[in-house]
């Protein structure tokens, strides 16, 4: 064991007062106009995470704490959320990071100011179909039926994909940035939209307007958010060359 202080780092934000109303309270290490919000941590706590069990209690607790701090800061100032599990070797390392990434982080922070992230996921509704009664069908009849079923499924997918394309075109108009997220099975699109707060009502009105039309095309929409701009904090900081 060493007596070195380890800091769990949550977000890069503007330098300023930092009362977030959390317990335990994180604090802000500042440098110029930038700050990094941290709290002391024993790196061993991350060893409690069981990587074979995603719903493991240790992971859930740490991820919730991370999100709680990010959201608390985000309520007061623009944030660049750091990747979960970022640990720095004390206050000196935090200042060094801010110094090295200053010119890169400051404009990124300005770009996302006043924005929130929304997730829109479109999936095929009613994927499971009732099974056909195949009793008494000849081989040819079965193959004909099968071909009809496959053609109809392909048409449904095409029409759903077109409807999702229209949705994206409509929503993109109200977003400053968009990003496709990894899609799970049966998901047609999983898109993150970075929306300026003065565009949010238009953005949601568009979703409401298109939900009915999408329903007719066999597409079910799910929205998540508002999120701090997790998906749009897609930069690397800290390289020595940045100095």
């Amino acid at each position: 064991m060493t007596d070195r202080q380890w800091l769990c780092a949550y977000v890069i934000t503007r330098n300023g007062p930092c009362d977030y109303g959390l317990d335990p309270a994180p604090w802000l290490v500042g440098h110029g106009d930038l700050g990094i919000v941290v709290s002391e941590i024993e790196p061993e706590v991350f060893e409690q995470i069981d990587p074979t069990d995603p719903a493991d209690g240790g992971l859930v607790r740490l991820a919730r704490r991370h999100d709680e701090v990010v959201r608390a800061v985000f309520r007061q100032a623009p944030v660049l959320p750091l990747r979960f599990g970022t640990v720095l070797a004390g206050t000196d390392a935090a200042v060094r990071l801010l110094r090295r990434s200053y010119d890169q982080a400051l404009p990124c922070l300005a770009q996302i100011e006043g924005h929130r992230e929304w997730g829109v996921r479109a999936r095929l509704a009613g994927a499971s179909q009732a099974r056909d009664d195949l009793t008494g069908l000849s081989g040819t009849e079965y193959l004909t039926l099968r071909r009809e079923r496959l053609t109809s499924a392909r048409r449904s997918r095409q029409s759903a994909a077109e409807a999702v394309g229209l949705l994206h075109t409509a929503l993109r108009r109200h977003a400053t940035r968009t990003a496709e997220r990894a899609r799970a099975h049966g998901v047609l699109a999983d898109t993150a939209y970075l929306v300026c707060q003065d565009q949010e009502s238009l953005f949601h009105r568009e979703i409401d307007r298109l939900t009915g039309a999408l329903d007719g095309s066999g597409v079910r929409l799910e929205t998540t958010g508002p999120w701090p701009p997790y998906t749009f904090a897609d930069i690397e900081l800290g390289r020595r060359a940045d100095v």
């Binding site: 780092a9 890069i12 991820a63 991370h66 999100d67 990010v70 660049l80 959320p81 750091l82 990747r83 979960f84 970022t86 720095l88 990071l97 982080a105 997220r181 990894a182 997790y230 998906t231 904090a233 897609d234 930069i235 690397e236 900081l237 800290g238």
Partner: peptide
């Protein structure tokens, strides 16, 4: 939280 965010 896991997938995205600034990487140091």
């Amino acid at each position: 939280v896991l997938d995205k965010g600034v990487v140091i």
